[in-house]
Design a binder for these strands. Structure first.
Length: 420
RNA sequence: GUGGGAAUAGCUCAGUUGGAUUAGAGCGCAGGAUUGUGGCUCCUGAGGCCGCGGGUUCGAAUCCCGUUUCUCACCCCA
């Protein structure tokens, strides 16, 4: 019997749940303010959704997908990312008929990779997709939302990177120019980059090998080869971001791993993150994707945030996930078994008043029980022994300052609110 | 998919060049220090197939091989 969870997966409980809830609730609050509504898509799709959506040349499609035949022989794939499924749903339900449409999701993703800290085979992302707006206004609003999420969580020193990768009109010619520039030096590239040169040349910009870096350094950047439409669009985006007072940097060699991106792309990274997995969130515009799926032309934009990675960084930076002061709660201590019924009655009373409470399920020494209550996060204890059972008055003790009060709960049910 | 490091109590870790007899510590947990009152202190106790499987050896937590998981660097991404 194997008793550990599979490689790259993890049980989430205890502290991690607090962080997770805090992140998701904070984001949902903002999604609501920005008028996004939630979509939940299936955990798996027809494999073709990702093959066509993400791009055959990407590592995700080439080697990282959990693909399996079902019992009827259909090829299915656990979702490795969130955009392609949402796009599929937009087309399937003709949601584009009422554009613009703003959707958000909180879902688990699956990629078959070598796990590292902040990089799991099953991981959680939250993200948005805004479909049907061509205006740079939506680019700015989406980037703004991404920045706000991390601000809301309490992050200070994150870096927002922005770039444009152009469109179908200007990117192919630029790639030709770029390849021509590189061509004489192809042999000096690292083996990976020689491969990239043929499959996805812009990825060479991501290479960390120094020799490749120097070759790239003075190469033409797409930024100066954008068509007039893309140039204008990008200038508008950056200017809108400035008017929102969002700090960002244009990173001319920023590229991203999916084939579907056009025009604006962006990424939020942490230089504090000890691991190399420093990208906490990222996204971009995908103006042609819905069309490629067989839908009408619907320009769209979205981003995704890595929840697990965000938790790692919050812990590392000691960012608290406690939203409010802890509310009052009561641990009910029974001194004799014969008072169990009375204890349950009191529990019921507390719960009707919306007070979180629990009871000792074993009769133990009072000192041990108070100690236990304190260690387990209770703010108050209520003691039920012979005196309380006969008088009907229960002793409620506030743990932080040892203060005890008498609660005549049957006579004055509201008194509990004054005592706590 | 490539290359390094690691795995001993619930947690953090000791464990000598392979050796004696019950594999240790701190924290945590449980019980106690005279009767129904917690933060300190003291005493006691429970809890380990030394990741799993094989091998070398008179003898393995320790050495070798395999395997699983974690971790780090690549690849790539959130």
């Amino acid at each position: 019997m194997v008793i550990n969870c599979p490689r790259g997966t993890a049980d989430i409980f205890g502290d991690d749940i607090s962080y997770r809830d805090f992140i998701i609730e904070s984001a949902k609050k903002l999604f609501k303010l920005f008028n996004y509504s939630e979509i939940i898509t299936p955990a798996f799709e027809h494999t073709e959704v990702f093959n066509r959506g993400i791009g055959q040349s990407t590592d995700i499609v080439k080697k990282e997908m959990y693909t399996f035949p079902d019992k009827k022989g259909r090829s299915l794939t656990l979702r490795p990312e969130g955009t392609a499924p949402v796009v599929r749903a937009i087309i399937e339900h003709k949601l584009y008929s009422k554009v613009p449409i703003k959707l958000f999701y909180v879902e688990n993703m699956f990629r078959y990779e070598r796990p590292q800290k902040g990089r799991m085979r099953e991981f959680w992302q939250l993200g948005v997709e805004a479909a049907g707006v061509n205006s740079p206004l939506i680019d700015a609003e989406v980037i703004w939302l991404l920045a706000l999420i991390f601000e809301e969580l309490g992050f200070k020193n994150l870096k927002l990177l922005v770039n444009s990768v152009g469109c179908d009109d200007c990117r192919p010619p630029y790639i030709n120019v770029f390849k021509k520039y590189i061509e004489p030096q192809v042999e000096s590239l690292c083996p990976d980059c020689r491969e990239r040169y043929n499959t996805n040349p812009l990825r060479i910009f991501d290479c960390k090998v120094r020799s490749c870096g120097t070759i790239i350094e003075d190469s033409p950047k797409i930024y100066s080869h954008l068509c007039s439409g893309c140039t204008q669009h990008f200038k508008a985006v950056t200017s809108l971001l400035k008017s929102l007072n969002i700090s960002f940097a244009v990173k001319e060699d920023l590229v991203r791993g999916f084939d579907y991106y056009t025009r604006t792309i962006f990424e939020i990274i942490s230089e504090d993150l000890e691991s190399v997995q420093n990208a906490l969130g990222g996204g971009g515009r995908y103006d042609r994707l819905i069309e490629q799926f067989g839908g009408p032309p619907v320009p769209s934009i979205g981003f995704a945030v890595g929840i697990d990675r965000t938790i790692v960084l919050m812990k590392q930076l000691n960012i608290s996930c406690m939203q409010n002061e802890q509310e009052n709660n009561v641990f009910v201590i029974l001194l004799e078994q014969e008072f169990e019924g009375y204890g349950l009655e009191f529990l019921s009373y507390l719960r009707k008043h919306g007070i979180r409470c629990d009871i000792s399920f074993e009769i133990k020494k009072i000192a041990a029980q108070i100690k236990w209550a304190e260690k387990n996060g209770f703010t108050h204890t209520a003691i039920i022994g012979g005196d309380e059972a006969s008088s009907g008055i229960i002793t409620v003790k506030r743990l932080k300052d040892f203060k005890q009060s008498q609660l005549n709960w049957k006579k004055d049910p509201q008194e509990i609110n004054d005592i706590l």
